[in-house]
């Protein structure tokens, strides 16, 4: 049913509820634990899985085309800036992959207001252009005269 939550692992912290782009991870009123309220609106984007520190959320592939038994688990470390994938086939074959997710520290982006401001005039340069294009100037097109 795309994502689901293991009852024994969920602490009810709400991180998954907060991140789901589809707004489909909600709390169950009675148990106060998270669950997927609308499995047929789940994109399997794995965002709820990536944020859950207790690894309580998992995916069971879509019922209409994924046979049972396979799994994909993931750990995303935003201090080391790597993501580790662990794939298990229905027949037991395993694959592991690790990828970098960012080259700088989280929070390190310099805000636009800390750059000196150019004067907003008639030219077409956007912020920090032409410097950030790494060419001398913004390309321009000679507009041909069109006979109508």
């Amino acid at each position: 049913m795309p994502t689901f939550v293991y009852a024994s692992k969920c602490s009810g912290c709400g991180d998954c509820v907060d991140i789901c782009p589809s707004d489909i991870i909600h709390f169950d009123r009675k148990s106060r634990k998270a669950y997927n309220i609308e499995p047929d609106a789940c994109w399997e984007c794995f965002n709820c899985i990536k944020v859950c520190a207790r690894q309580a959320v998992d995916v069971r592939g879509y019922a209409d085309f994924v046979p049972m038994g396979a799994s994909i688990s993931v750990t995303r470390d935003d201090r080391k800036n790597v993501i580790d994938w662990n794939i298990m086939y229905r027949n037991g074959t395993r694959k592991k992959f690790s990828f970098q997710i960012r080259t700088t520290e989280w929070g390190s982006i310099k805000p636009p207001s800390e750059y000196p401001q150019a004067k907003i005039g008639e030219d077409e340069n956007l912020s920090l252009e032409p410097e950030k294009l790494y060419v001398d100037s913004l390309p321009r097109l000679k507009v041909r005269k069109i006979e109508e």
Binding site: I72, M88, R90
Partner: peptide, 24 residues
């Protein structure tokens, strides 16, 4: 690795289809 990353970065379901249907 490049082939699998293509799916894991933007369409994880496809990796799950391969794993679930035993596609090598």
């Amino acid at each position: 690795e490049l082939g699998w990353e293509d799916f894991l970065d933007m369409t994880i379901s496809q990796a799950l289809v391969w794993a679930g249907q035993n596609v090598d």
